[in-house]
Design a protein around this nucleic acid. Structure first.
Length: 525
DNA sequence: TCTGGGGTCCTAGGACCC
DNA sequence: TCTGGGGTCCTAGGACCC
Protein backbone atom coordinates (compact mmCIF):
# COMPACT_ATOMS: atom_id res chain seq x y z
CA UNK A 1 0.00 0.00 0.00
CA UNK A 2 1.53 3.24 -1.11
CA UNK A 3 1.52 6.52 0.72
CA UNK A 4 0.62 8.40 -2.47
CA UNK A 5 -2.25 7.63 -4.88
CA UNK A 6 0.00 6.72 -7.80
CA UNK A 7 -1.85 3.70 -9.12
CA UNK A 8 -4.20 4.82 -11.87
CA UNK A 9 -7.17 2.89 -13.17
CA UNK A 10 -8.72 4.00 -16.45
CA UNK A 11 -12.16 2.83 -17.52
CA UNK A 12 -13.68 4.11 -20.74
CA UNK A 13 -17.32 5.15 -20.40
CA UNK A 14 -19.83 2.78 -22.06
CA UNK A 15 -17.01 2.05 -24.46
CA UNK A 16 -18.61 0.15 -27.35
CA UNK A 17 -21.79 2.21 -27.28
CA UNK A 18 -19.87 5.49 -27.11
CA UNK A 19 -17.69 4.45 -30.04
CA UNK A 20 -20.83 3.70 -32.05
CA UNK A 21 -22.34 7.06 -31.18
CA UNK A 22 -19.15 8.80 -32.24
CA UNK A 23 -19.17 6.89 -35.52
CA UNK A 24 -22.87 7.37 -36.24
CA UNK A 25 -23.98 10.98 -35.85
CA UNK A 26 -27.69 10.12 -35.92
CA UNK A 27 -27.27 8.03 -32.73
CA UNK A 28 -25.66 10.67 -30.56
CA UNK A 29 -27.61 11.32 -27.37
CA UNK A 30 -29.89 8.42 -28.28
CA UNK A 31 -30.23 5.00 -26.60
CA UNK A 32 -27.77 2.56 -28.18
CA UNK A 33 -27.33 -1.08 -27.27
CA UNK A 34 -24.34 -3.06 -28.54
CA UNK A 35 -24.42 -6.82 -28.28
CA UNK A 36 -25.69 -10.07 -29.72
CA UNK A 37 -28.46 -9.41 -32.20
CA UNK A 38 -29.74 -12.97 -32.53
CA UNK A 39 -32.51 -14.60 -30.51
CA UNK A 40 -30.01 -15.69 -27.85
CA UNK A 41 -27.88 -12.56 -27.78
CA UNK A 42 -26.94 -10.62 -24.68
CA UNK A 43 -26.06 -6.97 -24.19
CA UNK A 44 -22.39 -6.06 -24.20
CA UNK A 45 -22.77 -2.34 -23.55
CA UNK A 46 -25.70 0.03 -23.25
CA UNK A 47 -25.28 3.77 -23.72
CA UNK A 48 -26.22 5.90 -20.74
CA UNK A 49 -29.40 6.91 -22.56
CA UNK A 50 -30.38 3.21 -22.73
CA UNK A 51 -29.45 2.57 -19.11
CA UNK A 52 -32.17 5.00 -18.09
CA UNK A 53 -34.62 2.35 -19.30
CA UNK A 54 -32.95 -0.34 -17.18
CA UNK A 55 -30.84 -1.92 -19.92
CA UNK A 56 -27.65 -3.43 -18.50
CA UNK A 57 -24.63 -5.41 -19.64
CA UNK A 58 -25.12 -9.19 -19.73
CA UNK A 59 -28.89 -8.82 -20.00
CA UNK A 60 -30.55 -10.88 -22.74
CA UNK A 61 -31.04 -8.64 -25.76
CA UNK A 62 -34.65 -9.77 -25.96
CA UNK A 63 -35.25 -8.35 -22.50
CA UNK A 64 -33.49 -5.12 -23.44
CA UNK A 65 -35.77 -4.77 -26.47
CA UNK A 66 -38.79 -5.00 -24.21
CA UNK A 67 -37.40 -2.36 -21.85
CA UNK A 68 -36.19 -0.02 -24.58
CA UNK A 69 -37.78 -0.80 -27.93
CA UNK A 70 -36.63 2.45 -29.52
CA UNK A 71 -32.92 1.95 -28.95
CA UNK A 72 -30.57 1.19 -31.81
CA UNK A 73 -29.47 -2.44 -31.50
CA UNK A 74 -26.04 -2.89 -33.06
CA UNK A 75 -23.71 -5.81 -33.54
CA UNK A 76 -20.22 -5.18 -32.13
CA UNK A 77 -17.45 -3.94 -34.44
CA UNK A 78 -14.30 -5.14 -32.71
CA UNK A 79 -12.04 -3.81 -35.44
CA UNK A 80 -13.09 -0.31 -34.49
CA UNK A 81 -12.93 -0.88 -30.73
CA UNK A 82 -9.46 -2.43 -30.99
CA UNK A 83 -8.26 0.52 -33.03
CA UNK A 84 -9.54 3.04 -30.48
CA UNK A 85 -8.20 0.90 -27.64
CA UNK A 86 -4.73 0.93 -29.20
CA UNK A 87 -4.82 4.73 -29.26
CA UNK A 88 -5.79 4.85 -25.61
CA UNK A 89 -3.15 2.32 -24.56
CA UNK A 90 -0.56 4.34 -26.43
CA UNK A 91 -1.43 7.36 -24.31
CA UNK A 92 -1.10 5.26 -21.16
CA UNK A 93 2.34 4.05 -22.21
CA UNK A 94 3.43 7.67 -22.42
CA UNK A 95 2.86 7.82 -18.65
CA UNK A 96 4.63 4.66 -17.58
CA UNK A 97 6.17 1.45 -18.85
CA UNK A 98 3.99 -0.39 -16.35
CA UNK A 99 0.60 -0.58 -18.07
CA UNK A 100 -1.65 -3.56 -17.34
CA UNK A 101 -4.59 -3.83 -19.73
CA UNK A 102 -7.61 -5.68 -18.32
CA UNK A 103 -9.68 -5.49 -21.49
CA UNK A 104 -10.05 -3.24 -24.52
CA UNK A 105 -11.40 -0.42 -22.39
CA UNK A 106 -9.68 -0.78 -19.03
CA UNK A 107 -6.15 -0.66 -17.66
CA UNK A 108 -4.00 -0.03 -14.61
CA UNK A 109 -1.01 2.30 -14.83
CA UNK A 110 1.78 2.59 -12.26
CA UNK A 111 2.51 6.32 -12.25
CA UNK A 112 5.31 5.99 -9.73
CA UNK A 113 7.19 3.59 -11.99
CA UNK A 114 6.74 6.08 -14.79
CA UNK A 115 8.17 8.88 -12.68
CA UNK A 116 5.32 11.18 -13.61
CA UNK A 117 3.71 11.56 -10.18
CA UNK A 118 4.95 11.21 -6.60
CA UNK A 119 2.12 12.81 -4.67
CA UNK A 120 -1.64 13.26 -4.80
CA UNK A 121 -1.62 16.63 -6.50
CA UNK A 122 0.69 15.48 -9.26
CA UNK A 123 -1.28 12.27 -9.74
CA UNK A 124 -4.51 14.22 -10.08
CA UNK A 125 -2.96 16.52 -12.65
CA UNK A 126 -1.69 13.55 -14.66
CA UNK A 127 -5.13 11.94 -14.53
CA UNK A 128 -6.90 15.06 -15.73
CA UNK A 129 -4.44 15.58 -18.53
CA UNK A 130 -4.88 11.97 -19.58
CA UNK A 131 -8.63 12.40 -19.75
CA UNK A 132 -8.24 15.45 -21.97
CA UNK A 133 -5.78 13.64 -24.21
CA UNK A 134 -8.07 10.64 -24.58
CA UNK A 135 -10.95 12.85 -25.53
CA UNK A 136 -8.92 14.76 -28.06
CA UNK A 137 -7.36 11.66 -29.55
CA UNK A 138 -10.41 9.39 -29.67
CA UNK A 139 -13.43 11.62 -29.24
CA UNK A 140 -14.50 9.46 -26.29
CA UNK A 141 -14.55 9.93 -22.55
CA UNK A 142 -12.94 7.83 -19.87
CA UNK A 143 -13.07 7.85 -16.09
CA UNK A 144 -9.99 7.76 -13.89
CA UNK A 145 -9.48 6.39 -10.39
CA UNK A 146 -6.32 7.09 -8.38
CA UNK A 147 -5.31 5.33 -5.18
CA UNK A 148 -2.45 3.58 -3.45
CA UNK A 149 -3.64 0.12 -4.49
CA UNK A 150 -5.22 -1.51 -7.50
CA UNK A 151 -8.47 -2.45 -5.85
CA UNK A 152 -8.99 1.07 -4.57
CA UNK A 153 -8.07 2.69 -7.87
CA UNK A 154 -10.70 0.55 -9.53
CA UNK A 155 -13.34 1.44 -6.98
CA UNK A 156 -12.40 5.09 -7.47
CA UNK A 157 -12.86 4.98 -11.25
CA UNK A 158 -16.23 3.32 -10.73
CA UNK A 159 -17.24 6.21 -8.48
CA UNK A 160 -15.92 8.69 -11.03
CA UNK A 161 -18.20 7.45 -13.81
CA UNK A 162 -19.15 8.84 -16.17
CA UNK A 163 -16.49 11.21 -17.41
CA UNK A 164 -14.89 11.97 -14.05
CA UNK A 165 -11.88 11.50 -11.79
CA UNK A 166 -11.77 10.38 -8.17
CA UNK A 167 -8.77 10.19 -5.86
CA UNK A 168 -8.80 7.99 -2.77
CA UNK A 169 -6.26 9.44 -0.38
CA UNK A 170 -4.23 6.77 1.40
CA UNK A 171 -5.38 6.57 5.01
CA UNK A 172 -9.04 7.11 4.20
CA UNK A 173 -9.78 3.75 2.61
CA UNK A 174 -11.20 1.83 5.57
CA UNK A 175 -13.58 4.61 6.45
CA UNK A 176 -14.62 4.82 2.81
CA UNK A 177 -15.02 1.09 2.21
CA UNK A 178 -16.67 0.20 5.50
CA UNK A 179 -20.30 0.99 4.66
CA UNK A 180 -20.08 -0.33 1.09
CA UNK A 181 -21.66 -3.63 0.08
CA UNK A 182 -19.35 -6.66 -0.15
CA UNK A 183 -20.14 -6.77 -3.86
CA UNK A 184 -17.87 -3.74 -4.21
CA UNK A 185 -14.84 -5.90 -3.52
CA UNK A 186 -13.24 -7.61 -6.52
CA UNK A 187 -13.90 -11.32 -6.57
CA UNK A 188 -17.23 -11.11 -4.77
CA UNK A 189 -19.91 -12.20 -7.21
CA UNK A 190 -23.42 -13.52 -6.66
CA UNK A 191 -22.34 -16.85 -5.12
CA UNK A 192 -19.84 -15.40 -2.65
CA UNK A 193 -22.23 -12.59 -1.71
CA UNK A 194 -24.93 -15.17 -0.97
CA UNK A 195 -22.59 -17.26 1.17
CA UNK A 196 -21.61 -14.17 3.14
CA UNK A 197 -25.20 -12.99 3.44
CA UNK A 198 -26.20 -16.27 5.04
CA UNK A 199 -23.61 -15.52 7.70
CA UNK A 200 -25.00 -12.07 8.21
CA UNK A 201 -22.18 -10.35 6.35
CA UNK A 202 -23.38 -7.59 4.04
CA UNK A 203 -20.87 -4.75 4.17
CA UNK A 204 -17.12 -4.44 3.84
CA UNK A 205 -16.89 -3.49 7.54
CA UNK A 206 -18.76 -6.65 8.52
CA UNK A 207 -16.41 -8.67 6.34
CA UNK A 208 -13.42 -7.27 8.20
CA UNK A 209 -15.09 -7.92 11.56
CA UNK A 210 -15.76 -11.55 10.65
CA UNK A 211 -12.04 -12.21 10.76
CA UNK A 212 -9.76 -14.16 8.50
CA UNK A 213 -10.35 -17.64 9.92
CA UNK A 214 -14.11 -17.33 9.58
CA UNK A 215 -13.81 -16.13 5.98
CA UNK A 216 -11.44 -18.98 5.15
CA UNK A 217 -13.92 -21.43 6.68
CA UNK A 218 -16.73 -19.98 4.54
CA UNK A 219 -14.91 -19.44 1.27
CA UNK A 220 -11.76 -21.56 1.22
CA UNK A 221 -8.13 -20.75 1.76
CA UNK A 222 -7.24 -18.45 -1.12
CA UNK A 223 -10.52 -16.64 -1.49
CA UNK A 224 -11.07 -16.17 2.25
CA UNK A 225 -7.64 -14.79 2.96
CA UNK A 226 -7.73 -12.57 -0.11
CA UNK A 227 -11.11 -11.18 0.78
CA UNK A 228 -10.05 -10.42 4.34
CA UNK A 229 -7.08 -8.42 3.10
CA UNK A 230 -9.24 -6.50 0.65
CA UNK A 231 -11.80 -5.69 3.35
CA UNK A 232 -9.01 -4.06 5.36
CA UNK A 233 -8.03 -2.08 2.30
CA UNK A 234 -4.84 -4.11 1.99
CA UNK A 235 -3.86 -4.88 -1.56
CA UNK A 236 -0.22 -5.24 -2.49
CA UNK A 237 -0.72 -6.63 -5.99
CA UNK A 238 1.73 -4.95 -8.35
CA UNK A 239 0.84 -3.53 -11.73
CA UNK A 240 2.10 -6.17 -14.19
CA UNK A 241 2.73 -5.36 -17.83
CA UNK A 242 2.12 -7.89 -20.58
CA UNK A 243 1.06 -11.24 -19.32
CA UNK A 244 1.23 -14.15 -21.74
CA UNK A 245 -2.10 -15.76 -22.56
CA UNK A 246 -2.60 -19.13 -20.88
CA UNK A 247 -5.35 -20.45 -23.08
CA UNK A 248 -7.11 -19.72 -26.35
CA UNK A 249 -10.67 -20.77 -27.04
CA UNK A 250 -13.61 -20.20 -29.35
CA UNK A 251 -17.25 -21.03 -28.87
CA UNK A 252 -20.58 -20.59 -30.60
CA UNK A 253 -24.09 -20.51 -29.26
CA UNK A 254 -26.55 -21.64 -31.90
CA UNK A 255 -29.78 -19.84 -32.61
CA UNK A 256 -31.50 -23.22 -32.50
CA UNK A 257 -30.24 -26.25 -30.57
CA UNK A 258 -28.38 -28.79 -32.71
CA UNK A 259 -29.80 -32.29 -32.59
CA UNK A 260 -28.15 -33.91 -35.60
CA UNK A 261 -24.96 -35.60 -34.44
CA UNK A 262 -23.33 -35.14 -37.87
CA UNK A 263 -24.00 -31.45 -37.69
CA UNK A 264 -22.56 -31.32 -34.16
CA UNK A 265 -19.37 -33.00 -35.37
CA UNK A 266 -19.13 -30.63 -38.32
CA UNK A 267 -19.52 -27.56 -36.13
CA UNK A 268 -16.91 -28.86 -33.72
CA UNK A 269 -14.47 -29.31 -36.60
CA UNK A 270 -15.12 -25.75 -37.70
CA UNK A 271 -14.48 -24.49 -34.16
CA UNK A 272 -11.26 -26.51 -33.91
CA UNK A 273 -10.02 -24.85 -37.09
CA UNK A 274 -10.93 -21.40 -35.85
CA UNK A 275 -9.18 -22.09 -32.57
CA UNK A 276 -6.00 -23.21 -34.32
CA UNK A 277 -6.11 -20.16 -36.56
CA UNK A 278 -6.03 -17.96 -33.50
CA UNK A 279 -3.38 -20.10 -31.88
CA UNK A 280 -1.16 -19.74 -34.93
CA UNK A 281 -1.83 -16.05 -35.26
CA UNK A 282 -0.53 -15.72 -31.71
CA UNK A 283 2.56 -17.74 -32.59
CA UNK A 284 1.78 -20.31 -29.94
CA UNK A 285 1.13 -24.02 -29.66
CA UNK A 286 -0.76 -25.89 -26.98
CA UNK A 287 -0.74 -29.27 -25.30
CA UNK A 288 -4.23 -29.65 -23.83
CA UNK A 289 -7.35 -29.64 -25.98
CA UNK A 290 -10.67 -28.85 -24.31
CA UNK A 291 -14.17 -29.07 -25.67
CA UNK A 292 -17.19 -27.46 -24.10
CA UNK A 293 -20.76 -28.56 -24.59
CA UNK A 294 -23.78 -26.69 -23.33
CA UNK A 295 -26.98 -28.69 -23.50
CA UNK A 296 -30.51 -27.63 -24.29
CA UNK A 297 -31.11 -27.21 -20.53
CA UNK A 298 -28.04 -24.94 -20.11
CA UNK A 299 -26.12 -27.64 -18.24
CA UNK A 300 -22.51 -27.36 -19.33
CA UNK A 301 -19.63 -29.79 -19.34
CA UNK A 302 -16.03 -29.83 -20.49
CA UNK A 303 -13.82 -32.70 -21.58
CA UNK A 304 -10.08 -32.36 -22.04
CA UNK A 305 -7.14 -34.35 -23.33
CA UNK A 306 -3.48 -33.61 -22.85
CA UNK A 307 -1.23 -34.50 -25.77
CA UNK A 308 2.32 -35.74 -25.51
CA UNK A 309 3.62 -32.44 -26.74
CA UNK A 310 2.36 -29.03 -27.84
CA UNK A 311 0.80 -28.71 -31.27
CA UNK A 312 -0.64 -26.14 -33.61
CA UNK A 313 -1.73 -28.67 -36.20
CA UNK A 314 -5.39 -28.33 -37.12
CA UNK A 315 -5.66 -32.06 -37.82
CA UNK A 316 -4.39 -32.96 -34.37
CA UNK A 317 -6.73 -30.54 -32.63
CA UNK A 318 -9.69 -31.63 -34.75
CA UNK A 319 -9.11 -35.27 -33.91
CA UNK A 320 -8.63 -34.67 -30.21
CA UNK A 321 -11.84 -32.66 -30.20
CA UNK A 322 -13.64 -35.43 -32.07
CA UNK A 323 -12.42 -38.06 -29.59
CA UNK A 324 -13.62 -35.91 -26.72
CA UNK A 325 -17.01 -35.42 -28.33
CA UNK A 326 -17.39 -39.20 -28.44
CA UNK A 327 -17.44 -39.12 -24.63
CA UNK A 328 -20.46 -36.82 -24.57
CA UNK A 329 -24.13 -37.57 -24.93
CA UNK A 330 -25.71 -34.88 -27.08
CA UNK A 331 -29.16 -36.34 -27.53
CA UNK A 332 -31.61 -33.74 -26.42
CA UNK A 333 -29.88 -30.92 -28.21
CA UNK A 334 -26.73 -28.84 -28.09
CA UNK A 335 -27.01 -25.14 -27.39
CA UNK A 336 -23.30 -24.26 -27.44
CA UNK A 337 -20.08 -25.85 -28.59
CA UNK A 338 -16.56 -24.70 -27.81
CA UNK A 339 -12.99 -25.74 -28.51
CA UNK A 340 -10.01 -24.48 -26.56
CA UNK A 341 -6.31 -25.09 -26.18
CA UNK A 342 -4.29 -24.56 -23.02
CA UNK A 343 -0.87 -25.48 -21.76
CA UNK A 344 0.46 -22.98 -24.25
CA UNK A 345 4.07 -23.00 -25.35
CA UNK A 346 5.91 -20.79 -27.76
CA UNK A 347 5.61 -22.12 -31.24
CA UNK A 348 9.07 -23.52 -31.88
CA UNK A 349 9.97 -26.48 -29.73
CA UNK A 350 12.73 -29.00 -30.39
CA UNK A 351 11.05 -31.95 -28.77
CA UNK A 352 8.39 -31.87 -31.41
CA UNK A 353 10.21 -34.68 -33.24
CA UNK A 354 8.82 -37.59 -31.30
CA UNK A 355 5.43 -36.00 -31.38
CA UNK A 356 5.63 -35.43 -35.11
CA UNK A 357 6.17 -39.13 -35.72
CA UNK A 358 3.15 -40.03 -33.62
CA UNK A 359 1.08 -37.41 -35.26
CA UNK A 360 2.10 -38.46 -38.72
CA UNK A 361 0.85 -42.00 -38.18
CA UNK A 362 -2.41 -40.77 -36.74
CA UNK A 363 -2.62 -38.24 -39.52
CA UNK A 364 -2.46 -40.80 -42.29
CA UNK A 365 -4.90 -43.08 -40.58
CA UNK A 366 -7.32 -40.28 -40.15
CA UNK A 367 -6.94 -38.68 -43.53
CA UNK A 368 -9.80 -40.59 -45.03
CA UNK A 369 -12.16 -39.87 -42.24
CA UNK A 370 -11.18 -36.25 -42.24
CA UNK A 371 -12.16 -35.86 -45.84
CA UNK A 372 -15.51 -37.33 -44.99
CA UNK A 373 -15.84 -34.90 -42.09
CA UNK A 374 -14.85 -32.00 -44.31
CA UNK A 375 -17.47 -32.96 -46.79
CA UNK A 376 -20.06 -33.29 -44.06
CA UNK A 377 -19.05 -29.89 -42.75
CA UNK A 378 -19.53 -28.34 -46.15
CA UNK A 379 -22.93 -29.90 -46.48
CA UNK A 380 -24.14 -29.27 -42.99
CA UNK A 381 -22.73 -25.82 -42.26
CA UNK A 382 -24.34 -23.26 -44.43
CA UNK A 383 -21.34 -21.32 -45.70
CA UNK A 384 -22.41 -18.20 -47.52
CA UNK A 385 -21.80 -19.28 -51.09
CA UNK A 386 -21.66 -16.96 -54.08
CA UNK A 387 -25.37 -17.20 -54.72
CA UNK A 388 -26.26 -16.96 -51.05
CA UNK A 389 -27.10 -13.43 -49.90
CA UNK A 390 -24.70 -12.11 -47.27
CA UNK A 391 -25.99 -11.19 -43.88
CA UNK A 392 -26.32 -7.49 -43.30
CA UNK A 393 -26.03 -7.19 -39.55
CA UNK A 394 -27.23 -3.93 -38.01
CA UNK A 395 -24.38 -1.57 -37.24
CA UNK A 396 -21.89 -2.87 -39.79
CA UNK A 397 -20.12 -0.55 -42.21
CA UNK A 398 -21.10 -0.58 -45.85
CA UNK A 399 -20.17 1.32 -48.98
CA UNK A 400 -22.56 2.02 -51.83
CA UNK A 401 -21.18 2.84 -55.26
CA UNK A 402 -23.40 5.85 -55.61
CA UNK A 403 -24.17 6.92 -52.04
CA UNK A 404 -20.83 6.32 -50.34
CA UNK A 405 -20.14 5.16 -46.80
CA UNK A 406 -22.88 4.24 -44.37
CA UNK A 407 -24.03 1.59 -41.97
CA UNK A 408 -26.71 -1.06 -41.86
CA UNK A 409 -29.73 0.05 -39.93
CA UNK A 410 -31.69 -3.12 -40.40
CA UNK A 411 -32.57 -5.86 -42.82
CA UNK A 412 -35.31 -8.32 -43.50
CA UNK A 413 -37.67 -9.58 -46.16
CA UNK A 414 -35.04 -9.26 -48.84
CA UNK A 415 -34.20 -5.65 -48.11
CA UNK A 416 -31.48 -3.82 -46.27
CA UNK A 417 -31.77 -0.31 -44.90
CA UNK A 418 -28.65 1.83 -44.82
CA UNK A 419 -28.00 5.19 -43.22
CA UNK A 420 -25.42 7.19 -45.11
CA UNK A 421 -23.37 9.20 -42.65
CA UNK A 422 -19.81 9.36 -41.38
CA UNK A 423 -18.25 10.29 -38.05
CA UNK A 424 -17.52 13.79 -39.32
CA UNK A 425 -20.82 14.38 -41.14
CA UNK A 426 -24.17 15.45 -39.85
CA UNK A 427 -26.89 12.88 -39.33
CA UNK A 428 -27.43 11.18 -42.66
CA UNK A 429 -30.28 9.97 -44.79
CA UNK A 430 -31.71 6.46 -44.90
CA UNK A 431 -32.12 4.41 -48.07
CA UNK A 432 -33.34 0.89 -48.69
CA UNK A 433 -31.90 -1.62 -51.16
CA UNK A 434 -32.41 -5.22 -52.15
CA UNK A 435 -30.09 -7.40 -50.04
CA UNK A 436 -28.28 -8.54 -53.19
CA UNK A 437 -27.82 -5.06 -54.66
CA UNK A 438 -24.45 -5.31 -56.43
CA UNK A 439 -23.69 -1.66 -55.68
CA UNK A 440 -23.65 -2.39 -51.96
CA UNK A 441 -20.67 -4.00 -50.24
CA UNK A 442 -19.13 -4.31 -46.78
CA UNK A 443 -17.05 -1.33 -45.65
CA UNK A 444 -14.34 -0.48 -43.16
CA UNK A 445 -14.71 1.45 -39.92
CA UNK A 446 -13.89 5.12 -40.42
CA UNK A 447 -11.74 7.10 -37.99
CA UNK A 448 -13.74 8.79 -35.25
CA UNK A 449 -11.67 11.96 -35.21
CA UNK A 450 -9.58 13.84 -37.69
CA UNK A 451 -12.00 13.71 -40.58
CA UNK A 452 -11.82 11.56 -43.71
CA UNK A 453 -8.61 9.53 -44.06
CA UNK A 454 -6.22 10.31 -46.91
CA UNK A 455 -7.55 9.02 -50.19
CA UNK A 456 -11.08 8.74 -48.98
CA UNK A 457 -13.35 9.35 -51.95
CA UNK A 458 -15.40 11.84 -49.94
CA UNK A 459 -19.05 12.14 -49.31
CA UNK A 460 -21.06 11.65 -52.46
CA UNK A 461 -23.61 14.09 -53.74
CA UNK A 462 -27.07 13.79 -52.31
CA UNK A 463 -25.95 13.36 -48.76
CA UNK A 464 -28.48 14.58 -46.27
CA UNK A 465 -27.96 16.49 -43.10
CA UNK A 466 -25.95 19.32 -44.65
CA UNK A 467 -24.50 21.20 -41.71
CA UNK A 468 -21.83 19.54 -39.66
CA UNK A 469 -22.87 19.18 -36.07
CA UNK A 470 -20.94 20.34 -33.08
CA UNK A 471 -21.32 24.05 -32.69
CA UNK A 472 -19.21 24.04 -29.53
CA UNK A 473 -15.72 24.45 -30.92
CA UNK A 474 -13.06 23.42 -28.45
CA UNK A 475 -10.39 25.76 -29.63
CA UNK A 476 -7.97 25.07 -32.40
CA UNK A 477 -5.45 23.60 -30.02
CA UNK A 478 -7.59 20.55 -29.56
CA UNK A 479 -7.64 19.73 -33.23
CA UNK A 480 -5.23 17.11 -34.50
CA UNK A 481 -2.44 18.57 -36.59
CA UNK A 482 -3.05 18.57 -40.29
CA UNK A 483 -6.76 18.70 -40.04
CA UNK A 484 -8.28 21.47 -42.09
CA UNK A 485 -9.83 24.15 -39.96
CA UNK A 486 -13.51 24.71 -39.81
CA UNK A 487 -14.50 21.06 -39.59
CA UNK A 488 -16.52 20.06 -36.62
CA UNK A 489 -14.62 18.40 -33.83
CA UNK A 490 -16.34 15.09 -33.21
CA UNK A 491 -15.15 15.19 -29.63
CA UNK A 492 -17.55 17.98 -28.86
CA UNK A 493 -21.09 16.91 -28.22
CA UNK A 494 -23.74 17.82 -30.71
CA UNK A 495 -26.25 20.37 -29.52
CA UNK A 496 -29.45 19.96 -31.44
CA UNK A 497 -28.66 18.89 -34.95
CA UNK A 498 -31.17 16.07 -34.85
CA UNK A 499 -32.81 15.44 -38.19
CA UNK A 500 -36.52 15.75 -38.57
CA UNK A 501 -36.97 12.06 -39.03
CA UNK A 502 -36.85 9.82 -36.02
CA UNK A 503 -33.50 8.12 -36.20
CA UNK A 504 -33.87 6.04 -33.08
CA UNK A 505 -36.24 3.43 -34.29
CA UNK A 506 -33.51 1.55 -36.04
CA UNK A 507 -33.09 -2.11 -36.64
CA UNK A 508 -36.26 -3.16 -34.95
CA UNK A 509 -37.49 -6.32 -36.55
CA UNK A 510 -34.17 -6.94 -38.22
CA UNK A 511 -33.22 -10.50 -39.00
CA UNK A 512 -36.81 -11.54 -38.98
CA UNK A 513 -36.93 -13.11 -42.38
CA UNK A 514 -39.84 -15.45 -42.27
CA UNK A 515 -39.56 -19.01 -43.46
CA UNK A 516 -36.37 -18.92 -45.44
CA UNK A 517 -36.13 -22.66 -45.19
CA UNK A 518 -33.11 -24.60 -44.05
CA UNK A 519 -30.78 -22.94 -41.64
CA UNK A 520 -32.98 -19.91 -41.25
CA UNK A 521 -31.78 -17.66 -38.53
CA UNK A 522 -28.52 -19.43 -37.91
CA UNK A 523 -26.45 -19.10 -41.00
CA UNK A 524 -22.82 -18.08 -41.15
CA UNK A 525 -22.08 -17.61 -37.52
C1' DT B 1 -38.29 -14.62 -26.46
C1' DC B 2 -33.57 -16.35 -20.55
C1' DT B 3 -29.03 -16.65 -19.84
C1' DG B 4 -22.57 -14.33 -25.23
C1' DG B 5 -17.72 -14.97 -25.74
C1' DG B 6 -13.15 -14.75 -24.13
C1' DG B 7 -10.55 -15.22 -20.44
C1' DT B 8 -8.37 -16.11 -15.23
C1' DC B 9 -7.88 -18.46 -10.91
C1' DC B 10 -9.11 -21.95 -7.42
C1' DT B 11 -10.55 -26.53 -5.61
C1' DA B 12 -10.71 -31.38 -5.31
C1' DG B 13 -9.96 -36.16 -6.36
C1' DG B 14 -7.23 -39.79 -8.44
C1' DA B 15 -2.90 -41.44 -10.49
C1' DC B 16 1.70 -41.83 -9.91
C1' DC B 17 6.17 -41.37 -7.85
C1' DC B 18 9.65 -41.23 -4.25
C1' DT C 1 -2.27 -57.93 4.33
C1' DC C 2 -4.58 -51.84 8.50
C1' DT C 3 -4.26 -48.01 5.70
C1' DG C 4 2.40 -42.73 5.58
C1' DG C 5 2.97 -38.50 3.35
C1' DG C 6 4.14 -35.14 0.20
C1' DG C 7 4.70 -33.37 -4.60
C1' DT C 8 3.15 -33.13 -9.31
C1' DC C 9 0.20 -33.92 -13.16
C1' DC C 10 -4.27 -34.48 -15.11
C1' DT C 11 -9.21 -33.81 -15.27
C1' DA C 12 -13.70 -31.50 -14.21
C1' DG C 13 -16.23 -28.03 -12.44
C1' DG C 14 -17.27 -23.51 -10.59
C1' DA C 15 -16.84 -18.54 -9.52
C1' DC C 16 -15.69 -14.39 -11.34
C1' DC C 17 -14.37 -10.55 -14.60
C1' DC C 18 -15.11 -7.53 -18.72
Amino acid sequence: MRRAPTILHLDMDAFYASAEQAAKPSLREKPVVVGGIGPRGVVSTASYEARVFGVRSAMPTAQARRLCPNAAYLTPRFTLYRRVSDQVMELLHELSPLVEPLSLDEAFVDLEAGGVAADAAAARAVGERLRRDIRRRTGLTGSVGLAGAKMLAKIASEQAKPDGLVVIEPGTERELLGPMTVRTLPGVGPATAETLRRSGIHTVAETAEAGESELVRLLGRAHGAGLYAMALGRDERPVVAERDAKSISVEDTFDVDLTDRTRVRAELTRLADRCVQRLRAAGRSGRTVVIKVRNYDFSTLTRSETLRGPTDDPGVVREAAARLLDLVDTTGGVRLLGVGVSGLADFTQEDLFAQLATEKAAEEEAERERRAVDEAARQAVAEPGPERPRRWLPGLDVVHDEHGAGWVQGSGVGRVTVRFEQPWSGPGRVRTFPVDDPALRPGEPLPLVGGPPDGWPGAPAGRAGGEPHGGRAEGSGSRPPGEPGGRADPASAPQSSTPATRPNSVSAGAESEPGTGSGAGMSSR
